[in-house]
Design a protein around this nucleic acid. Structure first.
Lengths: 156, 156
DNA sequence: CTCGATGCAAAATTTTTGCAGTCCC
DNA sequence: GGGACTGCAAAAATTTTGCATCGAG
């Protein structure tokens, strides 16, 4: 996390997305509670990916009253808003990450040694998946390209 | 998703897959038990994808004594052998499917209405992921392209 | 025979839910 | 003030594990 008033650009970004989330809640007829906003802030401004449990911890640093149940109840709202995305890399638990720069399709390179997720622009892949899908008479809902990889130097 | 040192799947067409699995067990110093072979048979000859629980049920039709624990203990062996592959489509539980025709890389189109998984040849994809990964100074371990899609006729 | 493999049930993990009380609109 | 929201803890759902026993080699 970083302090809200650290950089101008961050502050601008924050106020915008903050409004976007409030508006999203309003449109859906959902209430703007202190807990929801704490979870939103912890989720949206985190740099790396995180689990629900880690998000709980971070949200609690902003609001002690946040409970695990509310984190789990808020995550679907966040992903539905498009501000946060779910990333499933085949572990038993799910990862989430902020969706700040989601203008182009990204491939995800997952380092098997560190579990770090590197996002790489892959606009062509988006087109490719769309072409494959349309050939089946279907419409793309979402797609993901995930590559598990390891550093070449770390040979077994 | 796929093990690098998997068996040569082509060999299945010339020889009995049963023998291949026995040989794999032998090479690994694992014993050929009745329960393992029942689970193997249920897993390898199933047409669709299935969960661990469904596999337990099917294996029990072949050998009443198969337990849930043994299914969970055998699944990693099956995936390591390359005869069965794990398919994670972002549900809480994992799917598995037989890997009979796995010569080329497949993209998976997942119908959001029926949960059906349609595998489509996507050899270009494999090359693309490899190129992206090598540009990062890394080596591909496995990759997957999954497309959630719905039938065009079923508009909301 | 020997030690790996198994079944059972309990435990671990992650996520969901019922309920009584809280607080947003 | 009414009803959506919350925290808590218990429950679900899936997978793992400890242990006594079994059986493959």
């Amino acid at each position: 996390m970083q302090s809200p008033e650290a950089f101008n650009i961050d502050a601008l970004e924050q106020s915008d997305s903050w409004k976007i989330f409030r508006k999203f809640l309003g449109t859906k007829g959902l209430r703007v509670t202190h807990q929801r906003m704490a979870i939103f802030q912890a989720a949206f401004y985190e740099e790396d990916h995180y689990t629900a449990e880690e998000l709980l911890e971070h949200a609690r640093e902003l609001d002690r009253s946040v409970s695990r149940a509310t984190v789990y109840r808020t995550l679907p709202i966040l992903t539905e808003s498009g501000l946060v995305k779910e990333v499933d890399i085949g572990k038993d638990y799910k990862f989430y990450m902020s969706n700040r720069n989601a203008t182009t399709f990204k491939a995800q390179v997952i380092c098997v040694d560190t579990d770090r997720i590197i996002e790489v622009d892959a606009p062509f892949m988006e087109w490719y998946g769309k072409a494959v899908t349309e050939k089946l008479g279907m419409k793309v809902v979402s797609q993901r390209l995930q590559i598990e990889a390891k550093k070449i130097s770390e040979e077994v």
